[in-house]
């Protein structure tokens, strides 16, 4: 609906308020790929699909529609770097497209607020836009290939599912993110249960943290077994889960077993494009990224 490659950047909650280093890396890297970002002024929580949608679906739909309306009024499609927010927007748009009465309901809530919304805007994920550019496009822009690094790729759930309402190829074995990781020069490692959920969503991390961290632990153990040098994710909530769960698990164990650096894709790509680790916020991680950076420079 809009001119090529300018998007309204939707931040959400976890990215700007807990991991602003991921936000910084997206703001640094996307323009270098020819993708311009405009702030979506006054946006709120998406709101979270597993929690707020679970509590009161009409409130979830109305607030999601408000965020989409802000983008629609700005004339740009929305872009987000969080799988949860992406899930909310894709699924809210599907509800509105399939049930016109729900759009009417939302418009009634918006009455007199100056919000214009027809559900014509699109919502995209940062990695969706990068994958549309393609691995070859990325490879051409890599100036410092990430050599000798084994990456554990984590797609996350809401990026891919429900598959009926996602733009990807219909398969349960996706490769687009692995290909984008390998375009930086790194190797995407095979590991057990790669498509397992991080365990954070659905309000589980918020209310039943022991179960949530135990799900993360299963994946972390599989990643250690595979000998990866780092995790690469594309979701601020999965990111929070892997960063914070490792610290929690180490505390419980009384030893530092879990020390896998966790990078967002644009941090890995930024390094491969010659950006300084500090610019990408790599000095602001819960799990120290220095061992990885040292290994890359060797």
């Amino acid at each position: 609906m809009t001119e090529a490659q300018t998007y309204s950047f939707f931040l959400g909650c976890v990215m700007p308020n807990r991991f602003p280093n991921l936000e910084a890396s997206i703001r640094k890297v996307l323009p270098k790929l020819g993708v311009q970002l405009e702030d979506l002024e006054g946006a709120s929580c998406c709101p979270a699909p597993g929690v707020i949608r679970s509590f009161d679906e009409p409130t979830w739909l109305a607030l999601a529609s408000r965020n989409l309306a802000l983008a629609e009024m700005s004339g740009h499609d929305l872009i987000t770097g969080c799988n949860g927010c992406y899930g909310t927007f894709k699924d809210a748009l599907a509800v509105i497209h399939e049930h016109p009465d729900r759009l009417k309901e939302v418009k009634k809530v918006f009455k007199g607020m100056g919000l214009k919304f027809d559900g014509k805007v699109e919502a995209k994920h940062v990695i969706e836009v990068i994958s549309e550019l393609g691995p070859d496009y990325i490879r051409e822009r890599v100036t410092r290939p990430i050599k000798g690094i084994k990456v554990g790729v984590h797609y996350g759930c809401h990026l891919l599912k429900p598959s009926k309402n996602r733009p990807w190829e219909q398969t349960q074995k996706h490769t687009f993110l692995d290909e984008l990781v390998e375009a930086t020069g790194a190797e995407s490692a095979k590991y057990k249960d790669k498509n397992l959920c991080c365990g954070a969503g659905g309000g589980v991390r918020g209310s039943q943290v022991t179960v949530s961290v135990d799900i993360a632990k299963e994946k972390l153990d599989n990643l250690i077994e595979a000998g990866v040098d780092c995790i690469v994710d594309v979701c601020s909530f999965c990111h929070l889960q892997y960063e914070e769960s490792q610290e929690q698990l180490n505390k419980e164990l009384g030893e530092k077993k879990y020390q896998i650096p966790v990078l967002y894709y644009t941090q890995l790509l930024g390094l491969a494009m010659g950006l300084d680790p500090t610019e990408l916020g790599l000095d602001k991680h819960v799990v120290n990224t220095q061992p990885l950076l040292d290994k890359i420079q060797d």
């Binding site: 759930c157 959920c197 039943q208 179960v211």
Partner: peptide, 12 residues
């Protein structure tokens, strides 16, 4: 009811 992480694997 609150142990579901909404990963959507069952739905798929």
């Amino acid at each position: 009811l609150w142990l579901c992480a909404t990963c959507y694997t069952c739905l798929e």
